[in-house]
């Protein structure tokens, strides 16, 4: 049981003189819901950017299912099984909801289709296109977005845009899903709904999820383990209750 999906070793990056992330060691087990918390500017998003290849770490490395992914490009890392959402939503705004998800499905092996096949509209093109649409609808159904599928992504209300971003990331069939403040800007009802969806996709898709969130109720409701960052370094790590009640953590949040 409990094999390690993500493992980071002394992961760190500095921008100029600033150590935005310093010596972070995290281990996340399969199907775990893991939290990454910390005050503003602690380096949480930077950790995500390191794990997805947006930045290359200046120190340390990370492994997905034992395979070293440090040094790979964003595309390669996604193909290996890490997908993410963004803190400031980055949807394909001028595309419909379903197209956003279809872009996520683009690289799935069962939907492979040579560009020249599409250029000539050979039968395979139609077959792939139809199968992709079916799959996209299935994914949208989980997020209760199926009825919105033909609307432009930018016309969705904020909460639904957040859900669509998760749906799109899920479409890439990841092993590890990184959610950057998924509940930001949601009302309590939507947050509750989102928690259920996250648990559901974890079970249905055999996912491991690492999430950043400021809403502590959300974190303690979902995550069994967390890492608390402050100024790029790990302040506390372990069971959610323990880590949140750590005097260092309370001090960091409340201030001296």
């Amino acid at each position: 049981m409990s094999e390690v999906v993500l493992k980071t070793e002394n992961l760190g990056i500095s921008f100029g003189g600033l150590k935005a992330v310093d010596n972070v060691n995290i281990e996340i087990k399969r199907k775990q819901l893991y939290g990454l918390v910390g005050p503003n500017g602690a380096g949480k998003t930077t950790v995500f950017n390191l794990l997805t290849g947006v930045y290359q770490p200046t120190t340390g490395c990370f492994y997905l299912n034992g395979e070293k992914l440090t040094g790979k490009t964003q595309e390669q890392i996604n193909h290996k099984g890490i997908a993410r959402t963004f803190q400031n939503i980055r949807l394909f705004n001028n595309m419909s909801v379903i197209r956003n998800v279809l872009v996520g499905l683009h690289n799935q092996p069962e939907f492979k289709c040579n560009p020249f096949v599409s250029l000539l509209r050979l039968p395979r093109h139609f077959k792939v296109e139809k199968a992709m649409r079916e799959r996209a609808k299935e994914i949208l159904r989980i997020f209760d977005l199926e009825d919105e599928r033909n609307n432009l992504a930018c016309n969705l209300p904020y909460g639904k845009q957040r859900k669509l971003e998760i749906a799109r990331a899920l479409a890439t069939n990841p092993k590890l899903l990184l959610l950057d403040e998924p509940a930001a800007g949601m009302n309590p009802h939507e947050t509750e709904d989102l928690m259920n969806i996250i648990r559901r996709i974890r079970d249905e898709f055999d996912l491991t999820i690492l999430l950043i969130e400021h809403d502590m109720k959300f974190v303690s409701g979902l995550c069994d383990e967390i890492t608390v960052l402050n100024f790029g370094t790990v302040l506390a790590q372990g069971k959610t209750e323990d880590a949140l009640n750590d005097p260092e953590v309370i001090k960091a949040y409340i201030g001296e």
Binding site: T73, E75, H79, F86, F92, N94, H106, T172
Partner: peptide
């Protein structure tokens, strides 16, 4: 679709493995 995705948001397109 991949091409318009790149135009709409290159960062997101990369993150989706395009």
């Amino acid at each position: 679709r991949a091409i318009t995705a790149i135009r709409d948001n290159e960062i997101a397109a990369k993150a989706m493995g395009i």
